[in-house]
Write a protein that binds this DNA or RNA. Structure first.
Lengths: 335, 335
DNA sequence: GGATGATACGCAAGCGCTTGCTACCAGCAA
DNA sequence: TTGCTGGTAGCAAGCGCTTGCGTATCATCC
């Protein structure tokens, strides 16, 4: 494969001029430039990114670490992050952890070895070790709902409170007083935060809240719903840790002869694309994943421009009202 | 950031020995090795991937080019490809084209500049230019349903025939004789192939087939269904170019008072994850996307091991039977 | 007519690693 | 003693590019 030296030789000029033409980094006589460009075509020259990055001493990579690309929450986030990165002149290096701490660490090491300019860790739970690892390598990083901002390290938090308040207010106005929460695994910070938000708001409304815990999947939702059904006295409104859980809940309720939303309202979380496609479509607490991806990059970018910067952003969740919620049949519509 | 030279100096030995310890590429005395390892820890040393790749003259990157990560067809493919690549000791560089030819070309250039060992182009349509570009750069490549295999270039084809035959046989046995196809945009090779497969099989059964064309989306399915409804005499079985289309079709039919599957059976294509989650869940012609991802890497891998190799694989589609199909109500169950 | 700026380019020292070649030192057989 | 061999490790030439510094040329201006 042709190198810059080949091009230079064939043009009868020095490598540096070729380099300057390629990078537009100092003026070059039009004829010289034209000749270089022509010869580059003739030799089918393609720059060597490794050599360039080595010589420059830094790369244009930003890392994005996620849990699992098959989790419908991520594609939108990735797309937004990638879009912002591309626009900012960066390439993204994507790593998946599959919810495995070792893989997460390996991913970070890989990013360090690639001298990524910055790394966004958007996994559902993060080992604090990672933050240290990246910090010690002097790489700017941003974490989702984890760690504390500091030197070259930022954080983005999801405020479940806004969405939770909107949801409970909405349900309350419909006449609901009796809630259940199918909470996700309580070893994931986001699920803890979500649960806490719901509990706080429900308590403020002096309503009842029954909490069951279940994996963050359709099957988990089914299991959670079975738990609720066997408990007797099904709450009229069921909040879920994710949309997948909500789908499982709805399916199980319907199979048990419970109509959704007439007998029970079900509210999901995330607002994954499929939430609009199910029937009934899902009322859900929306996590702004596109915004999250975009902000993640912006935060990194800001940290790159100013070494001292560190940010602590908060993104609000909101309620998307669709068909899976309605006024309860069992209960009167006033306090 | 500490370099190999720093480590070597601090150990009082040469760089080459450090390198050999890191790569396990020649025996080193145990004490020396231990010392090096210790010092690497002390200095917080992380190898420089750029320098390594430059020195080695090749990278361990394989490229994966896809259309749009938000298309639910891709995540499973990506995951399988990545899994296989990781196992094979490669890192994957993911690029998305957003269905844009310019971006596709830019992606390939980027991969060339990164001296990717191989590139899998799994976009829904590919510009032949890309194949040339990669070939001329001497990079092994594999394309989905495009181009012809050749020097350092392979192909994977989807055989829609198997799935189409299974679907029509199944529907025929249920008593269907009157079909519609909501075909995707006929400028995409895969949609052309799919349509052709369906047409061939239906003709062999001497049944009727009405074809309408619509975008490959939920909205497209809705439009397609409206076309069918206004045509009067709705066919009893409707095949769709994708699962999203099928969802749109079902939704529109139901809104028009047509019961699925009692009045009309609807069959999707792809078998995206959500196909099991809708109600009714989707009978669909399954594209083995995990297998596709895995085979794509294997084909590349084979080409890397043997420069002369070129492969032409065919992957069969199959029928996944779920709730959106049943015997037609309108028509007797015999010929 | 020499000083002065532009303008256009070459030189060469890296960037941090890999790797073929060579060197040294036992230990041992001839 | 000489010559091998096996175990260790150093030397130095790259890999292909970037970039600070320096130089040559030439029109311009008192």
């Amino acid at each position: 494969m042709a190198t810059m030296k080949d091009v230079a030789r064939r043009c009868g000029i020095s490598e540096s001029t070729v380099s300057h033409v390629i990078n537009n980094t100092r003026p070059v006589a039009p004829e010289t430039r034209a000749k270089i460009l022509r010869v580059m075509g003739e030799l089918n020259y393609h720059g060597n990114a490794h050599a360039r990055r080595l010589a420059r001493g830094h790369s244009d990579f930003v890392g994005l670490v996620i849990s699992d690309i098959e989790n419908p929450f991520y594609p939108g986030l990735i797309k937004a992050f990638e879009g912002a990165a591309l626009q900012g002149g960066f390439d993204v290096l994507l790593s998946t952890t599959r919810y495995d701490a070792d893989r997460a660490e390996a991913a970070c090491r890989k990013l360090i070895e690639n001298r990524a300019a910055g790394v966004a860790v958007m996994t559902s739970s993060v080992d604090p070790k990672l933050a240290t690892l990246l910090s010690e390598a002097g790489i700017a990083s941003v974490f989702l709902d984890a760690g504390t901002p500091g030197r070259r390290r930022s954080r983005i938090r999801l405020d479940f409170g806004t969405g939770a308040r909107a949801a409970i207010n909405y349900l309350h106005n419909l006449g609901h007083r009796d809630y259940a929460l199918v909470a996700g695994p309580q070893n994931r910070p986001s699920h803890v935060a979500y649960r806490k938000a719901i509990e706080t708001v429900v308590r403020a409304h002096r309503s009842r809240l029954l909490v069951v815990e279940a994996p963050n999947t359709v099957a988990g939702g089914e299991a959670g719903a079975r738990d609720l059904l066997t408990g007797g006295n099904l709450p009229t409104a069921i909040l879920c840790s994710s949309d997948l859980t909500a789908i499982g809940v709805i399916r199980t309720l319907r199979n048990a002869g419970v109509d959704v939303p007439a007998d029970a309202s079900v509210v999901g979380a995330d607002d994954i694309p499929l939430a609009t496609l199910t029937s009934p479509s899902l009322t859900t607490i929306r996590i702004p994943r596109e915004r999250l991806g975009q902000v993640a990059f912006e935060v990194l970018h800001a940290m790159l421009k100013d070494e001292k910067t560190s940010r602590d952003e908060t993104l609000e969740t909101e309620l998307a009202i669709r068909e899976s919620s309605a006024a309860p049949r069992r209960r009167a519509k006033s306090t």
